[in-house]
Design a protein around this nucleic acid. Structure first.
Length: 579
RNA sequence: GCGUUCGUAGCUCAAUGGAUAGAGCAUCUGACUUCGGAUCAGAGGGUUGGGGGUUCGAGUCCCUCCGAGCGCGCCA
């Protein structure tokens, strides 16, 4: 309820400033959603404490003097000193009409536009994508869409692992297979096999090991032929990643790929600049930084290793280079790292060092958008039957397959071609939604039955609610736009409950975005669906008692469908019109 | 050992420091000549891991204990 709440808060704040001129600072004047009223204001409780008076009396005084004409039809004091507000129906109807006429559905733009770099997905070249990449990719994609929706400038960065010692053995394996054979091997999508074969040879054959090591040196030395072979691996992998992203329907493209190798030239500069800032020390032959506040097992200062004993660099160095690149070249003001929580300490150290080195001048900042693991039925990290990590493609294919079976069973009239399209929206949507709908910092249990169920907080349930609305307009042979100018009346309780919720879309989107918590938007959309279906059960739309009521209800339907579709789109989930 | 995240109904999950901790699944009871029953209405089910503290008010903040996951020097 952005506008209504804002209007209320403005008047409350003004009144308190008048009544208690020196008390108005940092008082909680917010108008919150409430179970007992349309909204509640709790300011009297804090104020009473501060001025040493009875909270109910303070609340009553505010209620008596607060002028909410045209906004609220009722203000009452309840409990220990809550102000319960009932909005004026005419006012609500007017707000709804404004939202219905708004292509943004009431979602306001960011006041200050940020340049947001979002670092997510991050698969490794020549390695299969597995469930471990699911959460980063899906959460990152949702954040991209939400940031863009409020007008931020978003730069997607898929920080792929395309460099390091494993590439010696991978390139040698490629040479062994022959370029044509290797390309064939890689293009069938069996990257796991390729990697494992290389690994097996590396472990078993000293001769191969020698070649691999020499190849790493050649790669780092910039040997032309080696670089060409390396690029072949990268290109084949990129093609594979693109197919996965297409299946997943996320925004990532080849243009967003940014391998670690991209920072190679910057690594020397990182060392130079850390040296110039006098942060660098030598420890056991390695060049390291000791950021304050980090300790190891023995309670000794924990170093961030910048240059190894052997002179090589590692991930900490390239992560620091990355910070410099994002702040100084891309002008990032906000950097989101959609990375699993196990890396919390590493990222905290990167941030500490970058801050100490002066590479994060305000307003530039890093945020670790951490997330937990995907668990199987046994409550342990999800694994395949053979104990290996589950291939992402296989998981996605199974989701679509299961959805297709479900649609075939429940709606056999749907033509097969359409069924396949819909099955993809449902299956992929279900996987994404089950990932997004619980608090990201916690682990979650991956269960096919639950995520594909049409009951409960699932994508199919939301999609179904949307499809039913589309069905109403189809049956009535009405264009959706035609519903938007209607005068809205809110006589039935379920109409009113729905209307109140529709008006809170703006705050739901912002709430989810500000916490980088897509699940808050999921919860909102789920509640919207339940309120809608409840309305749908109780209020006939096409057979409404009058044309005016029918038009009003059609407007509520249209707005509900648009917010459902828009909200799901912000989560990267599609909404079929039939299913 | 140190650090960190988590612990809420039988299960899976919600809950800006605000009222009687909410949903879904499962269980039980109802509702289809009606816009998609792929649904809806209702019931039972809780010492929010234990114990202290701060606060007018704590699932939420602080301390402590218990339990689980993860991390902790040259992999990324």
């Amino acid at each position: 309820m952005p506008e209504a709440a804002t209007a209320v808060v403005e008047r409350v704040t003004a009144l308190i400033a008048r009544l208690h001129p020196n008390m108005s600072d940092d008082l909680d004047t917010a108008a919150r959603p409430s179970e007992h009223a349309d909204a509640q204001v709790n300011v009297a409780l804090g104020l009473a404490k501060r001025i040493g008076k009875n909270p109910r009396e303070v609340a009553q005084q505010i209620a008596d003097q607060l002028d909410l004409t045209g906004i609220c039809s009722k203000v009452e004091v309840a409990g220990p000193g809550f102000l319960n507000l009932t909005y004026d129906d005419v006012y609500l109807a007017r707000l709804l009409k404004e939202v219905a006429a708004d292509s943004r559905l009431g979602v306001h733009r960011a006041e200050t536009v940020e340049t947001v770099v979002i670092d997510y997905s991050a698969p490794n070249v020549a390695k299969e994508m597995h469930v471990g990449h699911l959460r980063s990719t899906v959460i990152g994609d949702a954040l991209v869409r939400m940031c863009e929706a409020v007008g931020h400038t978003v730069i997607r960065e898929n920080h792929i692992g395309d460099w390091g010692t494993p590439f010696g053995m991978l390139i040698e394996h490629l040479v062994d297979l022959g370029e044509v054979g290797a390309a064939r091997e890689l293009s069938v999508g069996d990257l796991d096999g390729f990697y494992k074969q290389a690994r097996a040879k590396f472990d078993a054959l000293p001769e191969f090991q020698e070649r691999a090591r020499a190849r790493v040196v050649a790669l780092q030395g910039g040997d032309t032929d080696t670089l060409r072979l390396w690029q072949l691996l990268v290109a084949e992998s990129a093609r594979y990643f693109a197919t996965v992203y297409e299946k997943l329907a996320v925004r990532l493209t080849d243009a967003d790929l940014r391998g670690e190798s991209a920072y190679n030239e910057l690594l020397v500069k990182v060392v130079e600049r850390l040296g110039a800032a006098k942060l660098l020390t030598t420890s056991d032959g390695a060049e390291v930084v000791f950021p304050a506040g980090f300790t190891n097992r023995e309670n000794e200062p924990l170093p961030l290793i910048i240059r190894k004993q052997d002179g090589g660099y590692n991930y900490a160095t390239s992560d620091l280079a990355c910070v410099i690149d994002r702040v100084e070249r891309l002008r990032a003001t906000l950097m989101l790292y959609v990375v699993g929580s196990p890396q919390a300490q590493h990222l905290a150290m990167i941030e500490a060092v970058a801050t100490d080195a002066g590479w994060l001048p305000s307003p530039a900042r890093m945020v670790h958008v951490a997330f937990g693991s995907v668990l199987g039925n046994d409550r342990k990290m999800l694994k395949s039957r053979t104990g290996e990590s589950v291939k992402l493609v296989e998981l996605l294919d199974e989701a679509v397959q299961r959805a297709a079976a479900s649609v075939a069973e429940k709606n056999p009239e749907l033509p097969e071609a359409q069924r396949n399209i819909v099955a993809r929206m449902i299956g992929i949507g279900a996987v994404k939604y089950s990932d997004l709908s619980s608090d990201r910092v916690k682990d979650y249990v991956f269960e096919w039955e639950r995520m594909l169920s049409f009951d409960g907080n699932t994508a199919p349930y939301l999609q179904y609610a949307h499809a039913r609305i589309c069905s109403i307009f189809r049956r009535a042979d009405l264009a959706r736009e035609s519903a938007r100018a209607a005068a809205i009346s809110l006589d039935h309780p379920s109409e009113r409950a729905l209307a109140l919720w529709l008006l809170q879309y703006d705050s739901a989107v912002w709430d989810a975005l500000e916490r980088y918590s897509p699940h808050r938007l999921c919860t909102y959309l789920y509640e919207l669906s339940t309120r809608y279906t409840s309305f749908y059960e109780q209020c006939p739309v096409l057979k409404a008692e009058s044309d005016a009521v029918r038009a009003s209800r059609l407007a509520l339907c249209d707005l509900s469908a648009r917010i459902l579709a828009d909200g799901l789109a912000l989560l990267g989930i599609q909404t079929p019109e039939q299913m």
